[in-house]
Amino acid sequence: MISLDALLSRDVRAGARLLRWIDDGNAEARGLLKQLYPHTGKGTIIGITGNPGAGKSTLTDQLIHRYRKQGKSVAVVAVDPSSPFSGGALLGDRIRMQEHAVDDDVFIRSFATRGHLGGLTNTTTDVVHALDAMGWQIILIETVGVGQDEVEVQRLAHTTVVTMAPGLGDEIQAIKAGILEIADIFAVNKSDREGADRTVSELQMMLDIGYVSPAEQAHHGGSILLRDQRQERVCPQGWVPHIVKTIATTGDGVDELMTALAEHTQAFQNACQDESFGRARQRQEFLDVFRRALFERGWSYLMHEDHLNQILDQLLDGSADPYTLAEEAVKTLYRL
């Protein structure tokens, strides 16, 4: 049993166990999440994403330092990939966050993707809700090393930092969709390396072409940028991504990154005053929870009374096609 009081007083053991239950899909977790939800909404949620090896963990470590200097408590959600073959995982993000290991105001938790695509785990939303309700003031989400399309973090984070290392050059032009679109802030890390200035100017050019100016937006009457229905991006009106050069190993440029983060947090909070903005954010969060609830319902139906095996039997003996069977299963499900 985990008590709500222990969670709300930020008891580490209780919190760590709840996160385990959430991650493992333990049924008791949902009851606690319902009770915790009214306490959410106070934390600042920051996503750190970017290519493998761009320096996400080291940059996260620097941000922990800065926020601790400001006296804020920091929780880190660090996601690494699961092996698609064994289902196991080697989670090594803590290696670069050693110094905070015995600071009571820093909580670091590693998660494996467990087959979930998109850069996070299937339950990161719940994990972040739990940490927020427990009173962690800053919640840093470090995604797996991403390629182009792992853009989930921006739906959850208030501010998304895309970390890049120099040397991509012209490739930026080719990959300007996907992760380059989700940045509120670009951190061009390892900026002492050759090509950093070029990366910055490529990004700048991309933004010059790709962003609708605030004036234009106002003209079109929109307070938020909406892309397609599933991957919609909700960001404060008029925010143009900042580009900051950093060297995470030395801390160079991290002050500038902190300034950019503070500016975006302010813009985000201002935007939250706008009802349509809040509504769009809620929509994203709800759809995530709803999608999982639907899947779980469907899954328990398939597992119930051998339904899945009956379906497989029909497929194997060629008496039905998967489309019809899936439709029938869904119909039965809704009648239940």
Binding site: S86, G92, I95
Partner: peptide, 15 residues
């Protein structure tokens, strides 16, 4: 650490 991963466990390596 690697062997345990290959046996399906989640291994946190701290360095």
């Amino acid at each position: 650490a690697r062997s345990l991963r290959d046996a399906g466990m989640e291994v946190i390596y701290t360095g």
